[in-house]
């Protein structure tokens, strides 16, 4: 964790940021101002009281900032020294450069916009004397996220093209998006699926495309998920331990140590063992073990036939 700043420093930073912000938003309500700075209205009131005492040496009415906020709306006069926002710090510049790189990844077909983003990034980089290049992408499309958020707020129905990796199936569904959630760094959409007539969870990075439907086929929604307890498998790992730990989401992994894994999808475990190309052996349950052997055997036969041609 980067070193946390002490409270008076954070407070000073906020006070210095407040003056230009109020200057650009004369007459803003105390409530909106507090929300913009992510503090309570009580804290904002204290901040403004403190600022009210600040000004040029001499500290007479002529030198102090002229701050008015007792009506619930905030205006500021006589604060020329602090009225411009402070220059960007190094961390702020890098956060922006990373953000711009992600934006570029989202709009890479729009050449004008890409040029514009590149020009901003070059200017910021020069400003900060930052030579390093930043490359950022996210499997979740910024366009798709924006459409989902809009559909949730507008309560619209979406038609999504969804790829289910476990079943290796591509499907088109009509869903009523309810909310977005993050779990273990992965972003999910909770939606009512008209096809399944039930609440379903979709990985947003697997939504390949979507359309907002004008006429929602609204039905009574039955928010019941089909619950399943899942099952346990026992595996032995022989190599590539870090990969196995990440693939099977384990706390730890040891060579030739039997490990128990809980999962909900048989498809997932069969595919994961296959994709481990020999680094993982499934011991139990025996029917999945037999299925893996049988599938590998029949595929092997096909390859051997191919080689004979």
């Amino acid at each position: 964790m980067a070193k946390a700043k002490p409270a008076p420093i954070i407070h000073t930073e906020r006070l210095l940021a407040l003056v230009p912000f109020i200057t650009a938003h004369q007459g803003i309500s105390l409530k909106d101002l507090a929300a913009a700075f992510d503090v309570t209205t009580k804290t904002m009131n204290d901040d403004l009281t403190t600022l009210w005492m600040c000004g040029l040496p001499g500290y007479t009415a002529l030198e102090l900032m002229d701050l008015s906020f007792d009506s619930g709306y905030v205006t500021i006069r006589n604060a020329p020294t602090l009225k411009a926002p402070r220059s960007l710090g190094m961390e702020e510049i890098v956060a922006l450069l990373l953000g711009l790189s992600l934006l570029k990844d989202s709009v890479n077909e729009n050449k004008d916009l890409v040029d514009r983003i590149n020009s901003l990034a070059t200017r910021l980089g020069e400003k900060g004397g930052i030579a390093a290049k930043f490359s950022v992408s996210n499997p979740v499309s910024s366009l798709i996220r924006a459409q989902i958020i809009a559909a949730i707020t507008e309560q619209q129905t979406l038609s999504i093209a969804y790829h289910s990796l476990y079943n290796d199936e591509f499907s088109h569904r009509e869903v009523k998006p309810l909310e977005m959630r993050i779990d273990g760094g992965v972003e999910y959409l909770f939606a009512y699926c008209y096809k399944a007539s039930a609440l379903r969870v979709f990985r947003i990075d697997r939504i390949e495309s979507l359309n907002i439907l004008d006429n929602a086929t609204d039905q009574l929604m039955d928010k019941q998920t089909t619950a399943s307890d899942g099952f346990y498998s026992s595996l032995i790992f022989s190599s590539r331990l870090r990969l196995m730990k990440e693939r099977f989401d384990l706390q730890d992994a040891e060579v030739n140590q039997e490990t128990t894994i809980h999962s909900f999808s048989k498809q997932w475990i069969v595919r994961s063992v296959f994709a481990s190309s020999g680094s993982a052996d499934l011991q139990a349950p025996s029917e999945i073990r037999a299925e893996i052997a049988q599938k590998a055997q029949s595929l092997l036969k096909r390859y051997l036939a191919l080689q004979k041609i």
Binding site: E13, A17, P20, F21, T23, A24, H25, A36, F37, P85, R86, L88, E92, A95, L96, L98, G99, L102, L103, S106, V107, N110, L113, V136, N138, P139, V140, S142, L143, R145, A146, Q147, I148, I149, A150, I182, G185, V186, E187
Partner: peptide, 27 residues
């Protein structure tokens, strides 16, 4: 803190020529 600075520059943000995007960094 960057956003507050950008909003303090007195330049109105013009989103009209930018596609509707909701970018999110990887966790």
């Amino acid at each position: 803190s960057v956003l507050l600075k950008l909003q303090s520059m007195g330049i109105e943000s013009d989103i009209s020529s930018v596609p509707h995007l909701a970018p999110r960094m990887a966790w």
